[in-house]
Design a protein around this nucleic acid. Sequence first.
DNA 1: TTCATGACCGTAG
DNA 2: ACTACGGCCATGA
Length: 104
Amino acid sequence: MEGFTERAIDTIKNVPSGKVMTYGQVAAHAGSPRAARQIARILHSMSAKHELPWHRIINAQGKIVLNDEESRYTQRALLIKEGIKVSESGFVDLNLYRHDPFGN
DNA sequence: TTCATGACCGTAG
DNA sequence: ACTACGGCCATGA
């Protein structure tokens, strides 16, 4: 493994379709539990380049928090297409769709 | 090395 | 559900 960023990207790539992970979860799995903000930055800047399933990453409340209106719509559409139920206000039920890297 | 920057997190009102 | 605040921390200039 390289550094935090590498592990984070790897973690994100391993989120299966139909599941989601929170920023904090990814950070923790990458070795830095309190570095959730870095995950946000990684997705913001490298999602296209690394072909990451960026739409499967949401915040700890299970809510979509993108600033851009268009991106929000896209993310919601992608999640729904994978079978995830998303409320109109952009909430996802983490109890049902949370992906646990360790399989718990 | 210091400084600003985030698609965050948890708590509180 | 919404806003406000303080805390956290890996990057890049």
